[in-house]
Design a binder for these strands. Structure first.
Lengths: 290, 290
DNA sequence: CCGCAGCCGGCGGGGGTCGATCACCCCGAC
DNA sequence: GTCGGGGTGATCGACCCCCGCCGGCTGCGG
């Protein structure tokens, strides 16, 4: 029989791609992970890992088993959720991971509301870089992740997601910029400016570049940062212009159709029925006035 | 996090009703089972067992968790099945449990056919009393059970079932019986005979009694046995008449609508896609000419 | 030459057995 | 009726063994 605890190890490997990273996520040494995977292979009688150089990748059988492992994990999560629904008094802790601006936007208000409506629920908030929250969620380090929609594949069967709010991207201009003070700005008018954008790999960068392209130009990129407050500081220092989500840095609306950032909450599949998760989700939805 | 191995113990308890019996099924001591269940309770933070006298029964939370445990088990079974489908050459062992007459009827021919069509598959057959096969199946002692339909609840989500064949009940008469030699017998003509039937609790007994009732009388029961060959011997010895499945003891057809015994094969849910199971199932269906 | 995967020796603890105890139920004796 | 005893079932404590982890090492590859 397959030892279901070993499936957990396999899942971690699939998520992190390397034995060492999986071990970190499981709070184990690489040695232990390697041994467990070897044991799993002999258990199922199949090669699950392919040694590719100094790394490993999953074989087809491995990929298959991972999908079943995900189903098992979801079922366990569901078991915990329905069981928790039996506890009459809602007590417990929920760990929420969120990027900075969403904390001020929705998490902090939700936390305040929960302090009075459900004082026995302790909400632990963790400021997490956008790209890090989903892995943390899957690792079980946090129970609910607030992230941008484009960081999730819609068909990811490991997660359940629900939308929180949508915000447009605003233009941020230096105080001395000729267009400063306008009520709206046309992107095309910024074709000759210097631009401050996020680092390559950050999806926001693609959003900005697509928007500029749509306005008929390619932005001249002079400075980069993944921290929107840093971007705001650079812009105020006259380093260039930027296009950032409204709640990150307050700017000027874009004339016409502005790109949008959709913010969603995600939980591990199966935990969506957990009463504490439902409570926090509802508080978050209340906080965005919905 | 719930340790999924402990769910296995909980399942065994639910199936067998007592810690000792669950321990037997798991090849453990009662002490070990008791400890694992206590650990599970503290893991989920709920009472799962209620001490009722010197026995235990499941609480509502326990019942709930059992259902999830069944889902997890089915998923693990499915994982094993899809992985086994990767092995090109069909090799392995399948344990089949069946009552005696079905062995001669379908299992033996299927075994003979598999010996030539799939020589690397070893089929182990086990003669099992009708009531015992399903528990053995759930315990993992056998992989496929051939049993009467009325021994299965149709909504049992732990099993997948498929029909094999249907046989009518025949009347068995002593050689010196006035109706002996007839091509058909009307049940109503046996109202004044002594009857040999199965023991109370055996569903066949209910079938016989219902049939007699339908024919307008209550059978006068003088001898009982759960072994149809023993019943046949008693009848031939002149002890009375009987109504038994045709393949168990050859008798005389009933005039009008005879009661039917539907014989089905059952496998653990999730294992229906296992290539070896499919192979055996097809061989069984071939053996009944379908 | 660093970093990662995979062995090997050694250790600790989870999880097993064993034996004893307690609780309960079904008896039959009185 | 009730009292006591035997059988059975659950649980606890003590012990212990092996599984599974760690740490250090090797080998390889980028």
């Amino acid at each position: 029989m397959i030892d279901p605890r070993r499936l957990r190890v396999l899942r971690a490997l699939a998520d992190h791609g390397t034995v060492t990273a999986a071990a970190r996520a499981l709070h184990l040494t690489p040695s232990a992970v390697s041994q467990q995977l070897a044991a799993l292979e002999s258990e199922v009688g199949h090669e699950l890992l392919r040694r590719r150089g100094r790394r490993v990748s999953l074989t087809a059988a491995g990929e298959l088993l991972v999908r079943h492992a995900n189903a098992v994990a979801a079922e366990l999560e569901r078991a915990q959720a329905t069981l928790a629904a039996f506890t009459s008094g809602t007590t417990g802790r929920v760990e929420v991971g969120s990027f900075a601006s969403a904390i001020t936007q929705v998490v902090a208000p939700a936390l305040a509301a929960l302090r009075v409506s459900a004082p026995d629920v302790t909400l632990r908030v963790r400021d997490v870089e956008g790209h890090a929250s989903v892995p943390l969620l899957l690792d079980g380090e946090i129970d609910l992740a607030i992230t941008e929609e484009y960081r999730l594949r819609t068909d990811d069967r490991r997660l359940t997601r629900f939308p929180l709010y949508t915000e447009p991207f605003d233009v941020v201009l230096p105080p001395e910029h000729p267009l400063a003070g306008r009520a709206e700005v046309d992107l095309a008018d910024l074709a000759d400016d210097d631009w401050v954008v996020t680092l390559p790999g950050n999806p926001v960068r693609d959003v900005v570049q697509l928007a500029c392209e749509h306005a008929g130009f390619a932005p001249r990129i002079t400075h980069t940062s993944d921290d929107f407050r840093a971007i705001g500081a650079l812009v105020r220092a006259g380093a260039g212009v930027a296009l950032v989500p409204r709640n990150a840095v307050r700017g000027v609306p874009v004339r016409g159709t502005a790109p949008l950032r959709r913010v969603v909450a995600a939980v591990r599949r199966g935990s969506e029925d957990h009463p504490l998760i439902e409570l926090v989700r509802d508080a978050l939805l209340d906080a965005v006035g919905q």
